[in-house]
Design a protein around this nucleic acid. Structure first.
Lengths: 210, 210
DNA sequence: GTCTATATAGGGATAGAC
DNA sequence: GTCTATCCCTATATAGAC
């Protein structure tokens, strides 16, 4: 039981780093394929081929398809966290001025928007593999937005009688919905423009001086 | 070429009606399973079992899984059309007063909301089987909302300087997004309440007297 | 760490009997 | 109109050689 664990510690630094590299390569390939065909519609063989290993080689790193999904979702979530923090800043109405950062980020990498839209829909029910992750993600996101708006209210920027929990739900909802319309029909729906109009409407709605 | 077609006309009325019933039964079973596991995650055998026929028997009616998907989507679309018409009415701000009809309809049948959320995500790209259907569906819906709001503006209910195309995109987006949050986390997000708050916010934003 | 080979399961679709 | 039987493909996961 302990022997194999001990043996791992003797792996060379080179091997460990190559191992991590492979993991990242696999995660990135899976990200792209999951985004296009969903988790259910993607086979491990396709991911493996894109990285240049066999399916068995891939499973050596992640153990199962579900573990790979978890890795993909956590990898992206970490990267998105920094952007969310930047947009929230110290809260208040300025949050709406910084929504364009999100729009530009998403418009530049449509595959990543697509990944989340697809995975959320594939994990709506508790029995789906990443359901708990997305339930938690939305709770955290709504809470972060609400907290940012509360800060603005404490400074007198935002009207005292606004329902900020409701506004948070609505803001997150509109961001997601606009993204879906844009992914489906980019010729008709401009994401950057949509986010800008949304920001303007919410700024007017919540402003204390308007 | 013509002979087989002629022969079909001699089928008895009873046989035809039983045939139609089976089709509807299959469509309803497929609706439920597609909603839960998606199109890709659902097998024909599961649908067939729920109706009490074999997989081959099912394919006799629809020819292929993709044709079945088309039938499911058109079946639901027809039923939703009447409700959309009712909510639009003769347009204007009253549209927002009738959004609760949509909320109640969806809340009563979460499976149908789920079906569309899942199928849209599975058909974001042009190569997906129902992509054209959903692209067209959203274009039509946005146009219907915009037309309803324009009617209200013509009557002086809605402010002259509002961008009603943008408002339509935003309304549809928020409806979809709230629905997704509710499906994912019904304990935290109330659909009826969310739609009511959304309606109130949009009424204030667009009202000519506000 | 990566391979080949394989176990085992499930998918969609077709042929032909009844 | 429905069945059984079957074809052929793809899927995930595991075993064991190198």
């Amino acid at each position: 039981m302990t022997a194999p664990l001990e043996r791992k510690r003797h792996a060379s630094v080179e091997t460990l780093e190559r191992g991590r590299l492979r993991r990242v390569q696999i995660i990135e390939a899976a990200t792209e394929l999951f985004a296009n065909a969903g988790y259910r519609g993607t086979g491990l063989a396709g991911i493996a081929a894109q990285v240049g290993v066999t399916q068995a080689g891939l499973l050596h790193h992640f153990g199962s398809k579900e573990k790979l999904l978890e890795a993909v979702v956590r990898h992206r979530s970490d990267q998105d966290h920094a952007l969310t923090e930047e947009i929230m800043g110290d809260g208040g109405l300025a949050v709406f001025d910084r929504l364009h950062l999100l729009a530009e980020h998403n418009a530049k990498r449509p595959g990543l928007s697509q990944l989340f839209t697809v995975l959320v829909a594939e994990n709506l029910l508790p029995e789906h593999p990443a359901n708990a992750f997305f339930v938690e993600r939305y709770r955290t996101l709504r809470a972060a937005v609400a907290r940012a708006l509360e800060a603005g209210r404490a400074r007198g920027e935002i009207r005292a009688d606004a329902d900020l929990d409701a506004a948070s739900r609505r803001l997150v909802a509109a961001l997601d919905g606009l993204q879906t319309q844009w992914l489906l029909d980019p010729d008709e729906v401009d994401l950057v423009e949509g986010y800008r109009e949304l920001a303007q409407a919410m700024r007017h709605e919540l402003s204390a001086t308007g």
